[in-house]
Amino acid sequence: MKRSYIVYTTIFAVVSGLILCVLLVFSKPETLSRIQETFAKIETQSKHQAAVKQVPPKTPSAIPNPEEPLIKNVQHMLYDDSIGSYLVVTDDYRFFEISGTGERINASFQLEEGKLLLAGLDGMTLVDGETVALLTSNQILVTITRKDGVWSEEKREKVQGTTIRDSFHGLGYDTKKKEFYTINHIRALGRVEVTYFAMKEDKIKIDPDASEKKKRALKKKQKPPYLSVIKREKIEAASGMRSDAKKSFESEFRPIGLAERQGRIYTLDSEALYLYSIDRKDKTITGETASPKVYGSKGIFVQDNELFALVVTDKFSSRSFTPID
């Protein structure tokens, strides 16, 4: 009888403990958020892979050996973890979606010439699981969207409020505030800042007591929303920044690209070999020696929470990028 009591008591204690642990873990909002995010990614990837299989390939789907690449002269690239694929833009503005193994082209299309001509590409970022934005050196923002596994250009807009002294490096997107941001190195002023731009609307105030004719006339004068610089935040060297990194930042800051990880902005100086980290809240920057020595790298991106440098741009292969930290 005592043995049975002990056994039942032990089982009850173990089960109660497990239930309590589950309740404690799943009651945390951040835990639930991560679980929901994971399932959402799995669902998105499943739907995307199904859509990709249904789309007839317009280009050879298999990437041959690196000696004979189909994708040449890479301008920028990033990793889209929502679909588990690499997104690549070449010098001639051809856009590719490549499988996570780097061995298959899932989709591609050519960005055509338009009223707003495209100069060199300064940055590239994910807006959401279905949208990518490109920022050119002549301050044109190109929006590319995916529908049923097919990518296409949605629109291109000129960023208003820029100056001839602005020099943008990289592109990021704040999903909560719906703002784009970029590292801006204004050499003429010796100033480094994070420049933000978003859709803006100059609303005309209409007197509710005005006549209907007057109201209609004012509404006709209302300009549509436009993309514009909304704020500029100067970045200073952090108090604990290494002296050599601080000297390089203040004298020869040469950032390439931009990557966001865990709330911080990362950029790489592939000449002085410093990996810089910007805290947007404190508006400060720190720097460490980049490892390995990725001289001449052309970009930086995040994959599975790890930073990578784009080291080979004449052709795309699994050797085009390498992890850094």
Rank of each mutant, 00 (worst) to 15 (best):
E97G: 11
H48E: 09
P64E: 08
L273Q: 13
S297L: 06
S108A: 12
G170M: 03
G149A: 05
T182M: 04
Y181Q: 11
S248P: 11
P60T: 04
I105G: 10
V192G: 07
F26T: 15
K177V: 06
F253P: 03
V22I: 13
D174C: 06
S33F: 08
N73H: 14
E30K: 14
Y93I: 03
S167V: 06
K246F: 05
L20G: 12
S27I: 08
P57K: 06
A40T: 13
E68L: 07
E130M: 04
K155C: 02
K247R: 14
Q303G: 00
K53D: 06
I183R: 01
E250V: 02
K234Y: 04
R104I: 03
V14E: 13
L20R: 14
H169E: 11
T131S: 14
F168H: 12
V159A: 02
L78R: 03
R3T: 15
K178W: 00
P292T: 04
S270L: 05
L20I: 09
A40K: 13
D314G: 04
E233R: 10
F249V: 01
I256F: 01
Q75S: 15
S270K: 06
V302N: 00
S16W: 03
A50G: 10
E236C: 03
D128P: 00
R254V: 01
G263L: 02
D128M: 02
I11Q: 12
L121T: 06
L218S: 12
D269I: 03
D282A: 14
I42T: 08
S82C: 08
T143Y: 07
K72E: 13
